[in-house]
């Protein structure tokens, strides 16, 4: 299946809502699977999206997860109204985390989220303003190989 136009959509994510955590990413993964993309590309996009969704749930009051699929690439944008990140370089280090204990008890907050998003993206950008929020933009190229 070839995509001729841009396919896009968005999900509103509510901070702290662990019961629905991952639903948006699962839905985006289903869309990518239904388009017949290569399994590894779908997996990378799903993992990057899930980490971004979890960060909104863990650290912020609310945010939006957007996806945009063109014939060349998948773009995921996660924009939140959270506290912002003071030191992005530090936050990008594997193992660095400011997550509280209750988040760790849920299996998250090990300081691998941002590095994992970067690892699974071909392009990765992060902008953050303390007190205003953070925007993460991830691009995954489609090599047009299909399963």
């Amino acid at each position: 299946m070839h995509i001729k136009d841009t396919i896009e959509g968005s999900f509103h994510i509510v901070g702290g809502d662990f019961s629905r955590a991952g639903e948006a990413s699962t839905e985006i993964k289903s869309i990518l699977q239904s388009l017949g993309f290569n399994k590894e590309i779908v997996r990378r996009a799903a993992i990057a999206t899930f980490e971004a969704e979890m960060n909104i749930i863990i650290y912020t009051t609310a945010g939006i997860l957007r996806y945009e699929i063109t014939p060349e690439r998948i773009k995921i944008i996660a924009q939140d109204m959270g506290p912002g990140i003071e030191d992005i370089e530090l936050a990008m280090q594997e193992g660095y985390s400011t997550a509280p204990d209750w988040v760790r008890e849920m299996g998250w907050g090990s300081g691998m989220g941002l590095p994992n998003m970067k690892k699974n993206s071909d392009e990765f950008r992060i902008d953050s303003v303390v007190g205003e929020g953070t925007t993460v933009e991830m691009v995954i190229y489609l090599d047009n190989t299909k399963d």
Binding site: F18, I47, F50, E51, M106, M112, P115
Partner: peptide
């Protein structure tokens, strides 16, 4: 769960003490 997402391959078994929905959701992703 981030370690699962970072290090795992597909066609793996996940062994975990986290007996919550998050483990299933992460495995599925």
């Amino acid at each position: 769960m981030s370690e699962v997402l970072y290090y795992s391959k597909d066609s793996s078994v996940l062994i975990t003490g986290l007996t919550k929905q998050q483990a299933i959701r992460t495995a599925d992703i």
